[in-house]
Write a protein that binds this DNA or RNA. Structure first.
Lengths: 181, 181
DNA sequence: AATATAACCGAACAACGTGTTCGATAACAT
DNA sequence: ATGTTATCGAACACGTTGTTCGGTTATATT
């Protein structure tokens, strides 16, 4: 990939991240992104069709970083699925989210973030499926409902944590989460 | 209240309801509401400051109808809190929602409905508080978390029901709901 | 019935955001 | 050195929002 393209793309992502820490996604205008990234208008639109496609690309990189099982972790980064038996992947995920790389928390807490939540849910789906054996499903409800409930509960737990200022430890939040599912 | 005001307000609400059955809230423009309601532009803005305030007023009337305990029910409408011991208010609420007066389901299922969900949650809060004794709270989690979890679960159950085409009976959905909380 | 009040109309307007176009310039790969 | 490709930046058409204002019509009051 052309170095210019790479630099522009990174400048856009960087500007987007910065703006996300200041305001909600749909309060951010393309004009602002262009200004902060210091690029031309046509350049932005040559990279991303619309602002929604920027979010899509952003989420894909983000979730790839958080969820992807394929990378080798050459920098000693402890992977979400790669933990010993004493703690759960959910604890690890809460810990990871607390660090707030890439301003994922801003996206989670923001208004009108349905698109982001859609991507987040889709990625959680795989994770929850792989961990379904951890949860005891009541026999009278369908598995699809149960799975949806676990995913929803995880997201709502996370939102509750963020809304309260994240004063609890990831361990405690994980305990809360498991207590209600 | 002036008959003209009342008629205009009703025309706007009616147009809004009709449009909600066709598209998401934020795809609806003020221009469309005006056209369907057949009123002048300035008239709309003399009634509602913005589209969001229209939604606010719409929700207030809607939730008043569903949740308000004060009215006398002169038309034999069975009130949400006024049910015998054998069924819960939650069952009654699911039944009420299934009828889909006022296109509330369109609002629930639509994208970018945070504002609506905010109002819905606020109204559910009172309801859940009055019914807290129905649920057994695990002793190791705070009451605020527990209350939030019940409200979230109710909303997510409802969303799941709607997304699946509402093929289950309200009784079954109520059973699902109580099985997971 | 006459009058004052208040709502409505509708056209025009400014402001803002979106997405496109195009010729010129600069960076890149070979 | 040369051809390709990204970027620039200004201008543009378009749609949406919310306001303004003078004229018209319905309502309430007497």
């Amino acid at each position: 990939m052309d170095r210019r393209q790479r630099k522009t793309r990174e400048a856009i992502f960087h500007a987007f991240t910065k703006l996300l820490s200041q305001k909600d996604f749909n309060q951010i205008t393309v004009g602002e992104i262009i200004e902060v990234a210091d690029i031309g208008r046509a350049t932005f639109y040559s990279h991303f069709e619309t602002k929604d496609y920027l979010l899509k690309a952003f989420c894909e990189e983000l979730f790839c970083h958080i969820f992807d099982t394929e990378n080798d972790d050459p920098h000693g980064h402890r992977h979400i699925f790669d933990c010993d038996g004493s703690d759960s992947v959910f604890l690890h995920l809460f810990q990871h989210l607390q660090k707030n790389d890439n301003n994922i928390l801003a996206l989670l807490a923001s208004q009108n973030n349905d698109l982001f939540l859609k991507y987040f849910r889709a990625n959680l789906e795989t994770l929850v499926e792989s961990q379904l054996s951890l949860f005891e499903r009541p026999t009278n409800i369908p598995e699809a409902f149960w799975k949806n409930h676990i995913i929803s509960t995880f997201i709502e737990t996370l939102k509750w944590w963020i809304a309260g200022g994240m004063i609890e430890t990831p361990e405690l939040i994980t305990e809360y989460f498991f207590s209600v599912v």
